[in-house]
Design a binder for these strands. Structure first.
Lengths: 204, 204
DNA sequence: TTTATTCGATACAGATCGGTATCGTTTGGA
DNA sequence: TCCAAACGATACCGATCTGTATCGAATAAA
């Protein structure tokens, strides 16, 4: 394995174990055993365990948001449908047998101090996701895109929290139905091509 | 302190520290230091740390659900308003400066194995809360009380998850507005006193 | 007042934690 | 081909973890 491959492999392994057991419960010794790497090697790539956690979260942050963007954009071009398509993407995540809750929520839950770097990294991810929802809400010409985005976000968080314990993907579908109903009642400025404002959108 | 007082005091202290630092990050030594109790005393009341966690969760489970019931029932007698009043109760919880996320979600997040007793205790709490929502939805004569209850539940979970990171209580108010809007569109069987079915409920 | 129980204090056991030091081997680039 | 860097393996460090053992003092009921 080349140097960059080892680093990636370590991040993959760490993320998998963090998701499976949590952050405190996952020891360095377990990570290197699963990754089949010497302890010295790990500490040559990451100064501390916290650095490893931060690197893992940053990687997943970019991966997740890129994957959601790609999924949504190739799924539909209608701006309102794109907001709803985020729940389809969410459903694929919750459908994973290995899903054990949002790793960023768990990270924040195990590092509750607001000044903790891990907490701040998790918070940053949530802000970026919210910004994407806002971008979609803006493109859909909703009257209050910020509020719409926070509503979509709240539904996402709710679905993930419920699925964390029930271990089923249904909450994603339910959240999508709720979002569809809420969005249908929202005012939108008419588009340049004379689309109806506030028309009822169908939830796929 | 009498024996029962010590036990209660230990549970109080443990719950406070679990909420502040998490479960793994809170050591037995810290708990006994904060509770000003000898280690032998703690282990005379609880066999293991896991037993302490379970006892703490069970206590909070009953406390929380009783408090919500009491809050809701004395707040209004209208069944639909009672469903919405659960969000007012939630707001009081999120307004606490010490709120760092739902302790049951955190417990499940740190004990992710579905067979783990701590996970199961957290799951049980969530089921009982959901059952209460279902009870309220049934009393409000909604056509699909089970679905209504899971929707209310999803909004609660979403508000708590968002508030865990943003550290503000606004998500509770937003969730209430969303719930009010969703419930207003739901069909209800007319009550015996000839109340309007499906009338619009105002969100306080 | 006696007696059994519970308490606090402390020392300690054994395991595990994150992290370092050492050293021989492998490997990739100049 | 040579050399520096990165590798694996392993022993080790001090700290911390959960949990136990010991023992004298406090306490409460009979």
């Amino acid at each position: 394995m080349r140097r960059s491959e080892i680093r990636d492999h370590l991040l993959d392994t760490a993320l998998r174990l963090f998701n499976q057991h949590g952050y405190h419960a996952t020891g360095i010794d377990l990570i290197i055993a699963e990754a089949r790497v010497a302890k010295t090697t790990l500490y040559r790539h990451f100064e501390t365990k916290e650095d490893l956690i931060l690197a893992a979260l940053e990687r997943r942050d970019e991966e997740d948001r890129n994957a959601m963007r790609a999924f949504v954009e190739q799924h539909t071009s209608d701006p309102v449908e794109r907001l709803l398509a985020t729940f389809d993407f969410l459903e694929t995540a919750l459908s994973d047998k290995q899903f054990r809750g949002c790793i960023f929520v768990s990270a924040a839950g195990e590092h509750k101090d607001g000044a903790n770097p891990v907490f701040r990294a998790a918070l940053m991810h949530k802000r970026l996701v919210l910004a994407y929802f806002e971008e979609l809400a803006h493109a859909a010409r909703f009257a209050g895109p910020k509020r719409i985005a926070t509503e979509i976000n709240l539904l996402h968080e709710g679905a993930m929290a419920v699925a964390q314990m029930s271990r089923i993907a249904e909450p994603a579908r339910q959240a999508k139905r709720m979002a569809g109903q809420l969005l249908a009642a929202e005012e939108r400025s008419s588009s340049v091509r004379g689309e109806d404002a506030g028309r009822r959108t169908h939830a796929s």
